[in-house]
Simulated assay, not measured.
Amino acid sequence: MTAATAGRIGPNAITRVAEVLPALLGEAGTRALFDAAGLGGHLRQPPEGMVDEAEVAQLHRVLRQQLGPAVAGQVARSAGMRTANYLLARRIPRPVQWLLKCLPAVLAARLLLQAISRHAWTFAGSGRFQARAGRPCVLTIHDNPLCRGVASNRPACDFYCATFERLFQVLVHPAVQVVETHCEARGDPVCRFELRW
């Protein structure tokens, strides 16, 4: 992570939430929620570049406050799946996808984790991301910006879980499941994700 990218996250963590909410809250309810998060401008003109991680954290905090943890988790999961679909359609080159799908799952997972680690600054912001290949693959985010100031009795990183799960199901093995075993929002020292198939 460089100084220029510290504390910034890709816009999908905002724009995909904006795509999911109208089916649940309607256009007016979506506007009200974004306004409550202080992000009404992002709804009117979706961000195209990196955004301040504090804005993303605030949106996900307001989701939990206004919708409750279960529904907010469903919204975040849907947004995470849409984020993965966006990455598959526009960011991960087709030849790379083809290669990963042809490889044995363990090797494909190792290569995909290397690529994710190189681009972790786009989703972990100022947090520190680490990945370990194996069975299971283990991903961790230390000082996760989406968990700062959040207290929850359940893991709160549904957005990340869904994004990782969808990418690995498409590119590594269709049976991949991601479980967040530790979460800073729950008081754990790190957010930890296990990927199993």
Rank of each mutant, 00 (worst) to 15 (best):
A151C: 04
P174H: 08
F159D: 03
S152Q: 09
V150F: 10
A89W: 15
G40S: 09
C183H: 01
G187C: 13
S152D: 05
L63W: 00
L100H: 06
T163Y: 01
P11A: 15
I92D: 06
R192K: 15
R135E: 11
V138I: 15
V71Y: 05
A124E: 08
G187D: 15
A156Y: 00
L99R: 04
A156N: 10
F164Y: 14
R148E: 07
R90Q: 12
A162Y: 01
L100Q: 09
H42M: 12
P11Y: 07
V17R: 12
A18L: 08
H182S: 15
A105T: 09
A6W: 08
R135S: 08
I116G: 03
A133T: 10
R166K: 14
V138P: 06
P174Y: 05
R128D: 04
F123S: 04
E180F: 02
A23C: 10
L171C: 10
F168G: 03
C183M: 10
C191G: 01
A23W: 01
R128C: 02
W121T: 01
E19G: 12
A156Q: 04
G7F: 00
F129A: 06
L43A: 05
L88D: 03
D158W: 03
L43T: 09
V71A: 13
L43W: 07
L113K: 07
V75Q: 00
E53M: 08
Q169H: 13
S152T: 02
Q177M: 13
G68D: 10
A37Q: 04
H42G: 07
C161R: 04
C147D: 06
R31I: 10
V138K: 01
A79M: 05
R44V: 14
V20L: 05
E53P: 15
I14S: 00
V20D: 11
F123P: 00
L67E: 00
R8G: 06
L88C: 13
P104Q: 13
A133I: 00
R82A: 04
L146I: 07
A23L: 06
L112P: 03
A70R: 12
R8L: 15
R82N: 08
E53C: 13
G80P: 04
A76K: 03
P93D: 12
D143L: 09
F123R: 02
L167W: 00
A175E: 15
D188T: 12
A72P: 01
D52A: 14
Q114R: 11
R135N: 10
F164W: 10
I116S: 00
L111R: 11
G125N: 04
